[in-house]
């Protein structure tokens, strides 16, 4: 067995190795890009479509994910009911499953399983922008739910109890006490869900397809252009996505730093 001193030296070595590896990865993308190339790609209509399309679909998917995740996270954190563990596990599935497998499940559901019935209601998800939103929503919702659940569970419930004795009904307590107390955790969860939706590829590709200028998100754009050998476009898009990811991570760290410890 390693002595205590040498054990921690070993730990430090692993940490430094991991950090160096991540930094080198980031540096490798940056080193193969240049500003001129980036500026050229930023003016490219395909890139402009992809970034606009990604931003609005991921924002809409995140909004829908928040609407679903907020009550789910609250109920799972606050109530002990039969089947709670099962419900909770269901939310883990999209996190654990490879996105491609999630995409196949979505494709079957919105295709042969219920596709016709939904089509009669005007819902056509397969190979459409709606499919992109559904895939992003499906992947992002569990992340938001888990974060909200931990946030609600970490709150001191006596704060809510005091509000009840001061004259607030349970619904008023939720709006006036629970939500404000959970604010940072909720913002962190939303950003996390948005980041996940922004980078979604596997499930989107299966359900919405990878059609240029139609269902082309940034991730899809990277894949499409790599597959045809347009390294400039792929690298510049990857760099933009990296910058967005770094920015979001910093924001998440700030908001989640003191409220959610998972």
């Amino acid at each position: 067995m390693l002595k205590r001193g040498s054990l921690f030296t070993f730990f430090w070595a692993i940490l430094i190795f991991a950090v160096l590896f991540y930094l080198l990865l980031i540096f490798s993308i940056i080193s193969y890009s240049d500003l001129e190339m980036l500026a050229g790609v930023l003016r490219d209509p395909e890139f402009r479509f992809a970034i606009k399309f990604t931003l609005w679909t991921s924002t809409l998917a995140t909004a829908l994910a928040t609407i679903v995740a907020l009550p789910c996270g609250f109920l799972l954190s606050r109530y002990r009911f039969k089947g709670r563990a099962f419900f909770d596990t269901l939310f883990d599935i999209p996190i654990i499953l490879p996105p491609l497998v999630s995409g196949i499940a979505l494709l079957i559901f919105f295709g042969p399983f219920w596709g016709d019935r939904l089509a009669r209601l005007g819902i056509n998800a397969v190979f459409t922008p709606l499919g992109v939103i559904i895939a992003q929503w499906f992947i992002a919702t569990p992340f938001a739910t888990k974060t909200f659940k931990h946030t609600f569970a970490s709150l001191d419930r006596r704060m809510e109890k005091v509000a009840r004795t001061l004259g607030f009904t349970p619904a008023m307590v939720f709006y006036k006490v629970t939500l404000p107390l959970a604010r940072n955790g909720i913002i962190g969860g939303i950003i996390m869900a948005w980041a996940r939706a922004l980078g979604e590829f596997g499930a989107t590709a299966m359900l919405a397809g990878i059609t240029r200028m139609k269902t082309e998100t940034l991730s899809v754009a990277v894949f499409l252009n790599m597959s045809i050998g347009d390294m400039k476009f792929a690298l510049s898009t990857a760099l933009v996505m990296l910058l967005i990811a770094l920015f979001l991570l910093v924001v998440v760290k700030v908001f989640l730093s003191d409220e959610v410890r998972t």
């Binding site: 006596r158 109890k161 005091v162 009840r164 004795t165 001061l166 004259g167 607030f168 009904t169």
Partner: peptide, 12 residues
């Protein structure tokens, strides 16, 4: 009666 109707003063 629920707490909001009892209106006792309460502090932890």
């Amino acid at each position: 009666l629920p707490p909001e109707q009892r209106r006792f003063g309460f502090a932890y």
